[in-house]
Simulated assay, not measured.
Amino acid sequence: MPPVSILLNILWILLGGLWMAFGWVVAAIIMAITIIGLPWAKAAFNIAAYTLMPFGQKAVRRDTLTGRADIGTGPLGLIGNLIWLLLAGWWLALAHIATAVVLAVTIIGIPFAWAHVKLAGIALWPIGKVIVPA
């Protein structure tokens, strides 16, 4: 990871990244407690790690990366994302947007606010995404 990404990730953790990653972990644990929620728990844990250190990485659709559809990017992934949206996605996205609004007040916080807005989109629709180096 380049030094700039390391510095940005440290600032990110201090400016809201840690508490949002904690929110993702809580959502993953709640999903894991219910056996039915295990597919969502795996995705939530992956995105929790991405939320903790987003600079130097990006989220892409798995079918775009591999060139072929799979269970998470097909019709079952659509159903899974809709269920996720109802159970946990909306409140995680809302928390990312609220954090983005607070950070956007300062010039220094604008890049971090933009990262929270991107994470809000991922919070709404996480199934079928994979985290790759930028």
Rank of each mutant, 00 (worst) to 15 (best):
A21M: 07
W24M: 04
W24F: 13
V25M: 09
V25Y: 03
V26I: 15
V26W: 03
V26C: 13
A28P: 00
A28K: 00
A28W: 03
A28C: 07
A28R: 01
A28L: 04
I30C: 07
M31A: 15
M31T: 00
A32E: 08
A32D: 11
I33V: 13
I33M: 14
T34I: 14
T34Y: 09
T34F: 14
T34K: 06
I35A: 15
I36R: 06
I36P: 02
G37C: 08
G37H: 01
P39D: 09
P39F: 11
W40E: 01
W40F: 13
W40C: 03
A41M: 11
A41N: 08
K42W: 15
A43W: 03
A43Y: 05
F45Y: 14
F45D: 03
A48F: 08
A49Y: 04
A49M: 10
Y50R: 02
L52Y: 09
M53D: 06
M53E: 09
P54F: 07
P54C: 11
F55M: 08
F55S: 01
F55Y: 13
G56Y: 04
G56S: 08
G56I: 11
G56N: 12
Q57N: 12
K58L: 13
A59P: 01
R62T: 14
D63I: 07
D63P: 02
D63G: 05
T64W: 15
T66S: 11
T66Q: 10
R68W: 11
R68T: 12
R68S: 11
A69V: 15
D70Q: 08
D70Y: 14
I71C: 06
I71P: 02
T73G: 05
T73W: 08
G74A: 14
G74Y: 10
P75Q: 09
P75F: 13
L76I: 14
L76H: 01
G77Y: 02
I79L: 15
N81D: 14
L82W: 12
I83D: 00
I83W: 05
W84L: 05
W84P: 00
W84D: 00
W84Y: 09
L85F: 14
L85D: 02
L85H: 05
L86D: 05
L87W: 09
L87R: 01
A88W: 05
A88D: 05
A88K: 01
G89C: 07
W90Q: 04
L92W: 02
L92I: 07
A93W: 02
L94N: 11
H96S: 05
H96A: 06
H96M: 09
H96F: 10
T99F: 04
A100N: 03
V101F: 12
A104S: 15
A104W: 11
A104L: 10
V105I: 15
T106E: 08
T106C: 13
T106I: 11
I107M: 10
I107R: 07
I107A: 15
I108C: 13
I108N: 10
G109N: 10
I110F: 09
I110K: 09
P111T: 10
F112T: 02
F112H: 05
A113Q: 04
W114H: 12
A115G: 04
A115H: 03
